[in-house]
Each structure stands twice: as C-alpha cells, then as structure tokens.
Write a protein that binds this DNA or RNA. Structure first.
Lengths: 259, 259
DNA sequence: CTATTTTAAGCTGTATACAAATAGTACTTT
DNA sequence: AAAGTACTATTTGTATACAGCTTAAAATAG
C-alpha cells in the first residue's frame, strides 16, 4: 500500500497517477526499438546518417539519452558512429551476410532443442493473422508492409524460444540481416516473394498444429537458406534463384514431434 | 606526409608523435576490457558496486566515457545499473547458468563447422604455454591465476573461430558465465580442478596436433559439461561431482578431422 | 585552369552542473 | 518500544557548453 507514496503535493497528480511518468530506462528502450524498427523498414536505409541532434529534437530529449541508444545500436552492429561525420546505418557485405545467415540457420535448429516452449493457441492465432496479411500483399508492391510482416513473424518465433540467451542472440542476428533482404526486394519478382512467404507461414502453421516444433524450425531453416541463396545469386549477377519448387520440397514431414 | 599536420606550436610534440595520442574509441575499449577482466577475476565480485565517479577518477576521465563503458557492460549482462544506487556486478542464478552453458556447448560444436580456421603453429605454441602454466598451479591455491589461465585459454579458442558473429557471441557468453565458476572454487578440491584443466588443455593440444578441430571442440564441450554439472551439484548441496575419471572418457577419438 | 592550402561548417566526444531517485538514519508519534 | 515519517547523503540520469575531428567548399599560388 505504501507503494504509491503520497509524495510531492503537486495537484497535477491526476495525469501522473494515470501514466505514472515513464521511467528513464523505459524511455530509452522505447526510443531504441523505434530507431531499430526504422532501420529494419528502410526508413533509415543503409549508409544514411541519422544525427544525434535531429533525433534529440524529435523525441524531445537531450543528446545524452540519444547517444546511449545509438551506442547500443552500434554494439548491435546496426550503425557505425564516426567522429565528426555522424551516425551511419551500416551496410553489410556478402561475407558477413553469409556468416550471419549460416549462424541463424544453426541457431534456428537449436531453438527447438534447448528448453523448447510449448506451442499455444495464441501462437497459432497470431500465425493465422500473419498468413492473412501475406495473402493481402499479392499484387501491391508494399516493401514496408512486407518488412513489417517479417518483423512480426520474427517476433512470434522469438516467443517460442525458451532459452533467454538464445532468444536475445537470435533477435540481434535477425535485425543485423533483415534490412539487407528488404533492400533488394525491388529487383525481385514480387508475387513470387509473397508466395514464398505465404508458403513458409502456412507450412509452419501446419507444423504447429501437429505440435511439431522441430518440423517448424526446419521449415524456417530452409526459408533462411533460400533467402541467403537468392541474395548471393543476385549479388553475383545471376538472376536465377531457387523458389517455390524448391520451397515445396521442405514439405517433407520430420515426424519428430507429435504427441 | 601532410598526415602529421604541424598543428599547435607546442614543443612537447616529441611525446605526442611517439604515442600518437590514443583515440577516443580505443580508450573506451581499453577501459571496457579492463573492467570486464576485473569482473572475471573477481576483483569486482558479484553484487559489488563499482561507481562511476570512482572509475572516472582512476582512469582520469569524466563520468561520460565511463558511463558509455558501463552501459556496454550492462548490455553484455555483466552489470546492472540502478538509479540512485550504483552499478552492481550481476550475480547469476542456476537457471540462467544452465541456459548459458547449454548454449555455449552447442556453439562450441558449431565453431568447428561454420567457416573453421586453420590450426597454426602459433596456436599450438600458445597452448603449450597454457599447459605449463596449469602445471605450475598445483598446490598453490591461486584463484586469480587460474581465472587468468581460463581467460587466456578462451582467447586462444576464440582465435580459432572463423565466423565473426559466432566469435563475438561466444566471447560474450564466456564472460557472462566465467566468474560464477571462479566464485565457487574455494569450496572445491583445488588440485583436482587443476588436474582437469591440465587434462583438458593437453587433450586439446593433442587434437590440434592431429589437425582435428572437431575433436578439439568435443573436448571443450565435455569440459563445459563437467563444469556445469559441478556447479549444479554444488548449488544443490551435494558435493560429489564428475571429475578426472569422467574427463578421461572424453579421450574418445572423434576421427573426424585428420588430413 | 589546376593543384594546394586554408577556412569554415557540422558532427561526435568530453566535462560538468543540475535534476531525479534510492537507501539509510535520525526523529517523531503512537 | 515499535512503527512510521521526514531528511540527508550518495548515486545515477539529463541537459548543455565546449573541445576535437572530418569533410567540403573557398581562397590562393603555380
């Protein structure tokens, strides 16, 4: 009861008790996630400079907490802070890209082994929603909507990882690589990409209905493999890439889960 | 040539041109590694507060760069920054401990698969040196010397990981868990611990001489397993733990490497 | 006109004063 | 005596002025 602490006799306590005045660390986390999302959605594309003063003005704070957030993004590998120049959104070379994707593929498999989560009805409802959103993207080339869809799918998958360290690492690796994939969407066949996304989501949903977590991560792993292959092929100039036909192959049932 | 830029007519330029005045980012990295090492060596034990002003005085800088370093350590999970209280070195519960060790075991295996490094003569020389240091620790209970030995062994193993993201993740996970193991050394049989360390090092060295990277990481994996088991057993009150006899079992040759 | 040097604008890095928050301590009240 | 309350010392969080660095434009010498 003494938790509220009738401090300070100010009479504007109405608003205060309503919103409880956001804590400092919460505010920094909010700004961090906001900027990270902007980077993933290409609102801040690679090689663009974002500037501490500009952000400070937008969020109505001084440069100090902004710097704290940008340094965290730097540790995450999302920006590079150059003295006298500004904070630049990092671009990723093919070698790093491959290393990140290879690691993500392995960690995806691991997430089904190390302290796995139980698949709940909520997870499946969320996935059904994502499936609908994917279907609605056919024909309308909406890169940002697609990027948002990928982010939200990622969030559902994160919630299925029981091991906290593994979850945090997977989260970081996702944001390190996600925007690069989105960057090259304009050069690819849009409906094919959406079809792959729909297929991946529906296959994962099917695996979830079988309570087959291992099967689910195998679908994800294969999807990551396909994305990496397309990125490599595109950067090498060849436009050919594995797609639907190859993806369908992932329909092999793992028969490992079940109940 | 215009690199030196005959700026400021001060005549103490001799010292300046010698040391080239440490760059800001380098200084912060140095302070970061220094504090991280102190945490790993228990100079700053878990639950101790380290204080920004104190560190600022020691390193002759203001609180600003110190805060930057401490926030990085916070993202690494090594400290907890509490407003109005201070910066507290984190303690780790058994559940987190197990998650970190399970993940490290899996990642250790991965490091032999994803873009593996070539084992060079330098690596083996370094390992021989570590083996000697281990032998010199028999009888003299020197926890800090042992912790230093573990850190240096870790550094050699990191240099054998080709994938940069995997290397950085492994590095972070090591420092998240290492100090906890050292914390409980006083309650364990010293010579037995040193014997295990010597055995682990010599077996890894043997695998390196066979150019058997997979065999080497299997030794490491089993060592991590033993450490985790001892930690669990100790925290549960049972003093029994698997040791030499069990470790020797890891002598099974993997026959996967070879040349 | 070209190449070099100088200069200036703009950005991040640092130091420092002040605000906010916590925890311990002394004091008051029941 | 015990419980609660106000206070104070200490610490982190924020805002801001200034220093250092980078880049590009402008001035200058050839």
């Amino acid at each position: 009861m003494s938790n509220i602490k009738s401090i300070d006799g100010t009479y504007d306590s109405a608003a205060k008790s309503q919103v409880q005045r956001e804590k400092s660390s919460d505010r920094r986390t909010r700004i961090y996630k906001t900027i990270r999302e902007r980077i993933s959605l290409l609102i801040y594309p690679p090689n663009s400079v974002i500037g501490e003063t500009e952000l400070a003005g937008e969020f109505n704070v001084s440069r100090t907490p902004i710097r704290s957030v940008l340094q965290r993004l730097h540790f995450d590998g999302l920006v590079q802070i150059r003295t006298g120049v500004g904070t630049v959104v990092t671009d990723v070379d093919l070698k790093t890209m491959k290393e990140v994707y290879d690691l993500r593929m392995s960690l995806t498999e691991l997430s089904a082994e190390l302290s796995p989560c139980e698949i709940t009805e909520e997870h499946m409802v969320a996935m059904e929603s994502l499936l609908e959103r994917a279907k609605n993207l056919y024909g309308r080339r909406d890169s940002m909507g697609y990027a948002r869809l990928c982010n939200d799918l990622h969030e559902v998958l994160m919630s299925l990882i029981g091991s906290k360290p593994l979850r945090e690492i997977s989260d970081n690796l996702y944001y390190q690589s996600a925007r690069i994939w989105v960057t090259m969407l304009p050069n690819l066949d849009w409906n094919q990409i959406i079809a792959d996304q729909e297929l991946e989501t529906s296959e994962m949903l099917a695996a979830m209905r079988r309570n087959d977590l291992r099967g689910m991560v195998q679908v994800r792993r294969f999807y990551l493999h396909c994305v990496l292959t397309r990125i490599s092929d595109y950067l090498k100039g060849k436009k050919s890439s594995p797609s639907r036909d190859a993806l369908v192959m992932s329909g092999r049932r793992t028969q490992s889960g079940g109940d």
